[in-house]
């Protein structure tokens, strides 16, 4: 029975900790992800957030969309800042200056803040073992500054700094695997999630917060603006990413792999790619190459899950 969970939408937390009225684009799946993450965490949470879309859309002085205590400091340091919050609170509670209470310490950043500029601080915080959760909202480029490529941009995607041109097919490099980098830190919990699978996401955030020590959650956050898709299709593309296995949903608990969702029928990656403007220039040959890498990586995950 342990392997099964029952999801009932009525049981999902009703209160909103990330309020409406913020300034995200229509169809922003990242804002949806933030909302779901905060539902799972509840009010006893402190968030440190990186500079980026979610920061600027949610905190234009003197307004805020955050109903939990929230701090933004800089682009590359949410992991370090939240580790400071955790250390400070730990000392204050131990010394009896703040009443003891379980508080979730959560760092949040986009893929640029996490995979590129904030890689060092994240690795440091995970290695030091703070009781914290780090959530990466991966929309696969620097969307806030205008869709520039990051190391988390997938192979073949056209961005404003990896544009497809007469002699280039867009991003020349493979997407950096942040989830596996987090796993390499031997921390208690690492998971991938996507707001198109809300129950799975809620469950993982709760688990990450409940386990003592650092946890890392990598959330694929569809960005209609940057991916050049219709705003109403954000959820659909999240599902296509998972169903094509380019973004498998899995978790690693104390080193044990578990595949949370096995697609009923693994769809060709072309179905995920073809509706997106950022991939529209790709030839059959390039798509076939992407299919090869997707299969290769998915097999690796499956093998680990079967072994465990």
């Amino acid at each position: 029975m342990d392997r099964f969970s029952v999801f009932t939408s009525r049981l999902v937390e009703k209160s909103e900790n990330f309020t409406s009225g913020h300034r995200a684009c229509q169809g922003c799946a990242e804002a949806l992800a933030v909302r779901l993450v905060l539902k799972a965490l509840g009010r006893d949470t402190i968030v440190a957030m990186a500079t980026g879309c979610m920061e600027i859309i949610s905190s234009p002085l003197p307004l805020t969309a955050w109903k939990v205590p929230w701090i933004h400091n800089a682009f590359e340091n949410p992991a370090a800042v939240i580790s400071g919050c955790e250390s400070g609170m730990k000392a204050l509670m131990r010394k009896g200056r703040v009443p003891k209470k379980k508080i979730n310490f959560v760092g949040m950043g986009g893929d640029g803040a996490t995979a590129d500029i904030g890689m060092g601080p994240l690795s440091g915080a995970l290695e030091r073992g703070h009781d914290m959760v780090y959530v990466c909202y991966d929309n696969e480029a620097y969307m806030n500054t205008g869709i520039q490529r990051s190391s988390s941009t997938p192979y073949g995607a056209s961005t404003t700094t990896s544009p497809a041109g007469t002699v280039s097919f867009g991003q020349q490099t493979e997407k950096k695997n942040l989830t596996q980098i987090a796993v390499a830190h031997n921390i208690p919990y690492v998971a991938t999630a996507c707001p198109s699978f809300p129950f799975d996401l809620l469950e993982k955030v709760k688990k990450a917060a409940a386990l003592p020590g650092p946890a890392y959650i990598h959330i694929l956050s569809v960005c209609p603006t940057g991916w050049r898709i219709q705003t109403e299709d954000a959820i659909k593309f999240g599902r296509l990413a998972v169903d094509s296995c380019i973004f498998p949903l899995y978790e690693v608990t104390h080193g044990k792999y578990n595949l949370n969702y096995r697609p009923y029928k693994k769809i060709p990656v072309e179905e995920y790619l073809k509706g997106q403007g950022r991939f529209r220039h790709l030839t059959d040959e390039e798509i076939s190459h992407i299919q090869t890498t997707v299969d290769r990586d998915y097999q690796k995950i499956l093998k680990r899950c079967e072994e465990d």
Partner: peptide, 15 residues
């Protein structure tokens, strides 16, 4: 860089 970031976090909680 992280030292100062940690200090900001810990000061923000009142430590």
């Amino acid at each position: 860089h992280s030292a100062m970031s940690v200090c900001c976090g810990s000061s923000a909680v009142g430590a």
